[in-house]
């Protein structure tokens, strides 16, 4: 999956003034970035804007990219930091708005999936997705982002440590705790479904 060397070539090309190289990098990673944002924050309405913001930040600082880490881990760090900023902003907003939870819920349950096979399959699939997504939103942001990078992006512990600039031990313990917390949050759901 990882196209590190290939990415480096594109980064170098961009640093030498080739803007098309940056567009290629966007095309390569836009889906992953959008999904990390979507899974971390929930709600589709902000995904496009925040994904764009990630690439704007990347564009601004790519001239200083030092090639000491892979491009994607650098990009995911920008993404996770942006998500954490957004969570802080929302918390601040929540202090002033009592409608926060209803806004969150409305955002999380909008627009069903397009990949529908049969109505009952789709219902089950949507239900599973929504239940897990809601539980995910209740994790601490630091646990949530680590779990998303592991489960969705399939990054190794080493790559996660590099991306988030934390120790390997911290990655292990956060993933374990995040999973345990998810298990507790989904306890009833698991009992019904098993």
């Amino acid at each position: 999956m990882k196209q590190s060397q290939d990415d480096f070539q594109l980064v170098r090309a961009f640093q030498n003034g080739d803007e098309k190289a940056f567009e290629e990098l966007i095309k390569r990673y836009q889906r992953q970035v959008a999904n990390i944002i979507y899974l971390t924050l929930g709600g589709r309405d902000i995904v496009e804007d925040l994904t764009q913001e990630v690439f704007i930040r990347a564009y601004r600082s790519l001239s200083r990219f030092a090639f000491d880490a892979s491009f994607y881990s650098w990009l995911y760090r920008i993404t996770v930091n942006l998500c954490i900023d957004e969570i802080r902003r929302r918390k601040l907003k929540r202090t002033f708005s009592l409608d926060f939870f209803s806004e969150e819920r409305a955002a999380a349950s909008e627009k069903p999936s397009k990949k529908i096979q049969t109505p009952s399959d789709a219902l089950l699939e949507n239900e599973k997705r929504d239940v897990v997504a809601k539980a995910l939103q209740r994790l601490k942001p630091s646990h949530r982002s680590v779990l998303i990078l592991r489960e969705y992006e399939d990054l190794t512990y080493e790559e996660i440590a590099q991306t988030l600039r934390i120790s390997l031990q911290a990655v292990k313990s956060r993933i374990f705790r995040a999973r345990e917390e998810m298990r507790t949050l989904l306890k009833e759901y698991f009992q019904e479904r098993l």
Partner: peptide
């Protein structure tokens, strides 16, 4: 569940718009 939840969608011309 997490993998199934990764359903973010971006418009077709996103890359050129973002650039």
């Amino acid at each position: 569940g997490i993998q199934a939840g990764a359903q973010a969608e971006l418009p077709h011309a996103f890359s050129s718009r973002a650039l």
